[in-house]
Write a protein that binds this DNA or RNA. Sequence first.
DNA 1: AGAATAAACTTGTATATACAATCTCATTTT
DNA 2: AAAATGAGATTGTATATACAAGTTTATTCT
Lengths: 236, 236
Amino acid sequence: MSQLKPAKYTIIKQYICEKIESGQWLEHSKVPSENELTEQFSVSRMTARRALQELTEQGLLVRSQGSGTFVATFKSQSSLLEIRNISDEIQDRGHQHHAEQLALQTVEVNEEMAILLALKPGDKAHFSSVLHFENNAAIQLEQRFVNPKLVPDYLTQDYTQITPHEYLSSEAPLTEATHEVEAILAEQDICHALAITATTPCLQVKRRTWSKQGVVSVAILTSPGNKYRLGSHLIF
Amino acid sequence: MSQLKPAKYTIIKQYICEKIESGQWLEHSKVPSENELTEQFSVSRMTARRALQELTEQGLLVRSQGSGTFVATFKSQSSLLEIRNISDEIQDRGHQHHAEQLALQTVEVNEEMAILLALKPGDKAHFSSVLHFENNAAIQLEQRFVNPKLVPDYLTQDYTQITPHEYLSSEAPLTEATHEVEAILAEQDICHALAITATTPCLQVKRRTWSKQGVVSVAILTSPGNKYRLGSHLIF
DNA sequence: AGAATAAACTTGTATATACAATCTCATTTT
DNA sequence: AAAATGAGATTGTATATACAAGTTTATTCT
């Protein structure tokens, strides 16, 4: 049935995908708003919204409340990561063996801590797209790193070479720890980060490699008592 | 704001997650329907639906039209894959090197074809969770492999050891090719498969390792003209 | 008893509406 | 000129409703 009479929101999704794939809608360009799609396809706003919403969840689009919906970069759409070698600082911490251990162990956080792990071109890692949390502490991070304030940055600015990873330990509350991470990102002219769609214990991570060099960074803001299974996501 | 006054659907999601994590709602058990949650939380059906929907997309729940919503298995919730060696038949096709090539190339399908790739314990592979399609031909498969008919099977039966992968080539229409895949699954007592949430060119794959041995199988039903980038998803 | 039918339940799609929250941009005030 | 205000646009959340599609269960008929 769905083949003979596809759902309306599917038609809208296909329309948008064709526009993007054909190159008519370039990266970072604004796509029609919910109201515009509503008129264009003669559907309700909720139907148009569903199309945009699902494409956003799939990484093709980026939405920002108040601003609009934009075409994501191809990097963020692709799941093929071309990272080959571990960053220097990780290697310094005990060569590849230590890095493997770091990646495969379950990280149990007992104090409020901000972890920023950035991989630069040449790093060898593979990211799975699911993060497991024992609560939803990462929501804070998502709101910070996919902050609307950042949208005009990664939509307009050029991307810079990322620096080696950083480990931050802070006693400050979540917000301050987040600011600390953001400060380092700003200090290093890093205007991209992972968007962590976080709502429940089982979280999905949307990769956002807003970088021309294929740089990927993972930023996780933790809180006491949380457990993170980084091991299932970072495979060196 | 969302911290001080969380969204209603978030509250419902947290409620369900707590039930599952605390063990009160076991695997395969039925969760409250949309109408029941509507009454219980005094919200509209769409709000309750959104909670169930998002948890389903995150892999915690499985929904079946007409039947209900069920708790997914822990295996399907976990992203930690314990697969170590490539299956025999893949190795026969040219050892690891060929397997790498098979995994990393872009598969362009020119005829209707059903591909069933099953990996058994000891196989070494890592699955990314995003599949790229050039249209939404895989929707058919999703509906077949997450067919309600299969729900009572993987909810009740024991899981069997999976066999090596199979490649099927068929001129039959989509439905017949699907039946062909299903027949082989049944013949080998395979009652688990990947659930492919397929709607648009950029698809997300929910892993459903309904197997005690950590077996993972990937089943893709293709149609002429489609292109699949398996390479970004299977890394040996 | 078995088969066909019908009713009830559950999820899927779609519309219409309302208000909140956020951002943009023009206007006004200082 | 700079800051504050306000209107408009856009996305986020929520409700109410309707019908479609698939499943389950009970009922009725043979």
